[in-house]
């Protein structure tokens, strides 16, 4: 085997291991951060700073009864939670962590990410449908509508960046930000992308498919044990993915002053966005499903289109 392949295998192993350690770690982070903002302690008993709660949670999930309701569609029920994890993990292929630290520099990186996140929607729909539970069905229905509509302008919002850098490859996009982060020319695009990203990961305020106080847990009401765990991990992986994409697209990816290595810059920026996601959850109420759709189609979509047209116009003028 030649060195290049071995090198790539190492990166794949590293990324996979890193993500699978960080994602459950986020459970701890989220609970501690929420607690901090809500005047509580949060998990602080198991291990230093309660860190071992991650281990305890994982163990607990493994040992819980793996229950498949008799009325469920077994095959689809089992497949659904794996889809979310697989599609999100596959999306990480195109994320540039640092110069050279990237599983594959696809020249259609952004399109590939959009495709994967569209596939991810199946997980919610199938999970909710296969559960054969009315609450899950309502959640799945909402989730499908939400993800499909928010993907439309998520794609559009990213086109501004593509126009500026002239490439779909995330590696090229990051390098194109050497002089100026795209957050400055593409501020509107950034805001839209972030909002769509939150909707994509269905986190509060866009947790309408789950909406605890109405639909109990929505599409994953019937799931238990590690199948539930997969939905859970999938959600956290989604947060990392959207955060790292936001950083790559608008905040110069790994770029940063020399006193820190590029990988660390990337991690720090991503971490900041992860915290932002958690803060959102701590502070905002949840809009109603139809309000969310209205907001998406009537406000976000026109702005995304306008942003695209203006960006294209400006680029044409200066060429």
């Amino acid at each position: 085997m030649d060195d290049a392949i071995i090198h790539r295998l190492w990166i794949i192993a590293g990324v996979l291991a890193g993500l699978l350690i960080v994602a459950p770690g986020l459970i701890w982070l989220e609970r501690r951060m929420l607690a901090l903002w809500q005047d509580r302690y949060g998990p602080n008993r198991a291990g230093p700073f309660g860190l071992l709660i991650v281990l305890a949670d994982t163990l607990k999930l493994f040992f819980k009864e793996d229950w498949i309701p008799p009325f469920a569609d077994k095959f689809v029920f089992v497949i659904a939670p794996t889809i979310v994890v697989v599609t999100v993990l596959l999306s990480f292929i195109v994320v540039p962590f640092a110069p050279g630290v990237m599983v594959s520099d696809l020249n259609i990186g952004i399109l590939y990410f959009l495709a994967m996140s569209s596939l991810g929607a199946y997980s919610i729909i199938l999970g909710g449908w296969a559960s054969n539970n009315k609450y899950s069905l309502l959640g799945a229905m909402r989730g499908a509508a939400q993800m499909i509509s928010y993907e439309v302008f998520m794609g559009l919002s990213m086109m501004g960046v593509v126009l500026l850098s002239g490439s779909f490859s995330l590696n090229t996009i990051v390098e194109a930000q050497k002089d100026m982060w795209f957050i400055i020319p593409q501020f509107a695009g950034f805001v839209i992308f972030l909002i769509a990203g939150i909707a994509e990961t269905h986190r509060l305020p866009f947790d309408i498919p789950e909406s605890e106080s109405e639909l109990i847990a929505g599409f994953h009401s019937e799931y238990s044990s590690m199948k539930f765990g997969l939905f859970f991990v999938g959600e956290y992986l989604g947060i990392i993915l959207i955060s790292s994409l936001t950083v790559s697209l608008y905040f110069g990816g790994w770029l940063g002053p020399d006193f820190l290595p590029p990988l660390l810059w990337f991690c720090l920026k991503t971490f900041a966005f992860i915290c932002f996601f958690i803060l959102l959850r701590a502070s905002l109420p949840r809009p109603r499903y139809d309000q969310l759709m209205e907001y998406g189609w009537k406000i976000m979509l026109p702005i995304a289109l306008l942003n695209l047209v203006v960006t294209a116009g400006v680029i044409l003028m200066y060429k």
């Binding site: 929420l34 903002w37 809500q38 005047d39 509580r40 509060l204 305020p205 947790d207 909406s211 605890e212 106080s213 959850r281 701590a282 502070s283 905002l284 109420p285 949840r286």
Partner: peptide, 16 residues
């Protein structure tokens, strides 16, 4: 009430 409409934090402040 705040929690019913999806706002997670106020209930903690108010119970305090």
């Amino acid at each position: 009430f705040a929690q019913d409409v999806g706002q997670l934090s106020p209930v903690f402040y108010m119970f305090t």
